[in-house]
């Protein structure tokens, strides 16, 4: 089942001054259960594409459909609600809520979904166990290493049971061991739970594990390679 479809997506920054075409007609389809890396040199449009797919930014041209919804037609508030229910985000800089513990960070999105307290707590603990942080649940982000914070971020992204997870350079700030650890966790979740992951990355370690590698050059899909047996 298709979870993401983009057709002729164009995104232009600075349209009035010095226009920069960050995306220049991107056609892409992501189906359920993929483990896809969007790669390309700096400035190729990876993050912009992720932002557009994630409903954080709007395309200037083209269509973006996520889970069968035309997200371009949504208002800002509708988009916020849509993201909350359908999309999990993992950011490069972890971006956890610094004043909340790991458990509270994971619970937070479920709270925004008005899930019952018991369910929130149980799911947060289950997810933190799944990312190997059962002994760090009551630690705040400042008390965790970068790798641990990113694992909390993955648990948080999974908490609302999204259609897919968008991860923008999730390993950029991690050492090799943490990267391998995080990738193992995400790969397992993809294998066992059929969770769809879409990364933007230029980290070879991530690219090596991806089942599909979409290469962007100058805002266009240059190559789209499906590799059997990876992950």
């Amino acid at each position: 089942m298709k979870v993401i479809t983009t057709k002729g997506v164009v995104k232009i920054y600075n349209p009035d001054k010095i226009p920069v075409k960050a995306l220049n007609g991107v056609d892409l389809e992501i189906t359920e259960g993929e483990f896809t890396a969007i790669v390309g040199p700096s400035g190729s449009g990876k993050t912009t594409l992720l932002n557009v797919i994630g409903g954080l930014d709007r395309p200037d041209e083209g269509d973006v459909e996520v889970g069968g919804h035309d997200i371009d037609a949504m208002s800002d508030n509708q988009l916020i609600d849509f993201r909350k229910e359908h999309i999990g985000f993992v950011f490069q800089a972890y971006n956890l809520i610094p004043v909340l513990t790991a458990r509270e960070n994971v619970e937070f999105v479920m709270l925004l979904q008005n899930r019952p307290k018991k369910e929130r707590r149980e799911r947060a603990e289950e997810l933190l166990r799944a990312v190997g942080l059962e002994d760090k649940m009551d630690k705040r982000p400042s008390e965790l290493s970068g790798g641990q914070q990113q694992r909390v971020a993955v648990a948080r992204a999974l908490a609302p049971k999204p259609d897919f997870i968008l991860a923008d350079e999730p390993t950029a700030n991690l050492d090799s061991k943490s990267t391998a650890n995080l990738l193992d966790i995400m790969a397992r979740l993809n294998e066992e739970e059929k969770i769809t992951f879409v990364f933007s990355t230029h980290d070879q370690r991530v690219i090596d594990r991806a089942r599909r590698v979409v290469t962007l050059v100058d805002g266009k899909v240059a190559t789209d390679e499906v590799r059997e047996g990876k992950v």
Partner: peptide, 16 residues
Amino acid sequence: IKELGMLMAIGMNKLK
């Protein structure tokens, strides 16, 4: 600013 952006990105609406 970054944290508030993240909160809105993950689904915290403007009213909240």
